[in-house]
Computed example of a mutant assay.
Amino acid sequence: MSQATVQTLPFTLRGGAGTLAAWESTPPHGVEMRGTVLLVPGFTGSKEDFEAMVPILSAAGFRCVAYDQRGQWQSDGPDEVSGYTMVDFADDLNLVVDQISDDIPIHLVGHSFGGYVARAALVAQPNRFRSLTLLASGPSSISDVNFTPPQLVAQLIESGGQQALWEQMNRSLAPLVPPAKLEFLHNRIFATKKANMIGIMRVMEGPTDYTPALRATALPILIAYGNSGDLWPPSVHERYAEELNARTAVYDGVGHLPNEERPARVCADLVAFWTAVDAR
């Protein structure tokens, strides 16, 4: 099925702190609807992180919804850091589910910090979900992770705002990213609320271990990750998959953004996973 027949349309959702900017795409005419997928972006991210995946998944028969979390990019959010707790993010996600699905469970995909939010939302209301995919989203942000400690990142943003974070990011991105994409990333950072970024870092300083609760749901889980330069080493993802009795999908030569570096492969793995889930 040609992806050219798939339309991705902007729309708005209701969040706990205002309007959430979102995208929606549905299967083209003649393609059977196989379910609804909700895609959740991570720290400094947005719905655009799934731009290459959405048309592929919809062409395969899945209605896709992706949204900017509170305070990200084009979504409303409070100016106070206190408005960005894990409960706030997870409540927003479950409120989104209420708006895009009646009683039919959906497939949930969370990238990086979006995976943390997805875990919390799923544990709170497991009956609303058909499966969970953690995309480049490891078990902890404070141990076994190749990332500056969240507390230090929060301090950087508190003192220097978006400009300080952008200077850090730009040094690594500029040689690798086309100018148009770099301009978008720049604009997104400065449109994302400072309180959002500090709040996320504070949440990540000590995230709750959802492993026992996730296992108790007995929902199918896929852990998908790159094996070259992700924030978590492959061994950490592998161990986490064993703890969750989860399937794995591994992308050779890929870092923290398999959704952008290998979108077709990620989508093929997702469709295969969801097909297996539906066949259970």
Rank of each mutant, 00 (worst) to 15 (best):
L165N: 03
A195H: 03
Q151F: 07
I104R: 13
L219Y: 09
A164R: 05
G110Y: 04
A218T: 13
G160R: 10
S159Y: 04
N187S: 15
W166C: 04
V177W: 04
D91M: 13
L108H: 08
Q125M: 11
R215T: 02
Q125W: 10
A120W: 09
M204K: 02
L108D: 04
A191F: 01
S172T: 15
Q163P: 03
S141V: 07
A213G: 03
H111K: 09
N196M: 11
T211H: 00
S112F: 08
G206E: 05
L173C: 05
A121F: 08
L165K: 00
I200C: 10
P139N: 00
V145K: 09
A191S: 15
L165E: 03
I198W: 05
A124E: 11
G114T: 11
G110I: 05
I221L: 01
E158W: 05
P105I: 09
S101Y: 12
I189K: 08
N187D: 14
S172R: 14
S172V: 15
S131H: 02
S143R: 14
A216H: 07
P126E: 00
Q125F: 12
D92C: 08
G115C: 04
P149E: 05
G138S: 03
L176C: 02
S101K: 08
S131M: 01
T211D: 06
V109M: 04
Q155K: 14
D103S: 15
S143F: 14
V97I: 12
R130N: 11
R130T: 05
Q99P: 08
V109K: 12
D98L: 09
W166F: 14
A195P: 05
V145C: 12
N170E: 15
A218G: 09
P149H: 04
R215D: 01
R171M: 12
D102A: 15
M201V: 01
L135F: 06
L95H: 12
D92N: 09
I100V: 15
L219V: 06
P207G: 09
D92K: 11
L185K: 08
T217Q: 00
